[in-house]
């Protein structure tokens, strides 16, 4: 088992543990950074930060 301090994985391994039939799947993610610190799917004004003109 790992805890938040030990786990610094990001999207690349964002999947359930790779056992054939895992006994338990449990995880919690957090947002490291979004365009406006707000949203996670494009909706009203939330254009990815690197694409903002300003």
């Amino acid at each position: 088992m790992r805890t938040s301090k030990e786990v610094k994985r990001t999207h690349k391994d964002m999947h359930a543990p790779k056992k054939e039939t895992p006994h338990i799947i449990a995880y919690r993610m957090k947002c490291a950074r979004t365009a406006n610190g707000l949203t996670h799917f494009v909706m009203y004004g939330d254009v990815p930060k690197q694409q903002m003109p300003l």
């Binding site: 938040s4 994985r9 999207h11 964002m14 799947i25 995880y27 919690r28 957090k30």
Partner: peptide, 12 residues
């Protein structure tokens, strides 16, 4: 959005 997410904890 997925690229910007990281685990707070993961039971494995």
């Amino acid at each position: 959005a997925v690229r910007r997410m990281e685990y707070e904890y993961l039971y494995a």
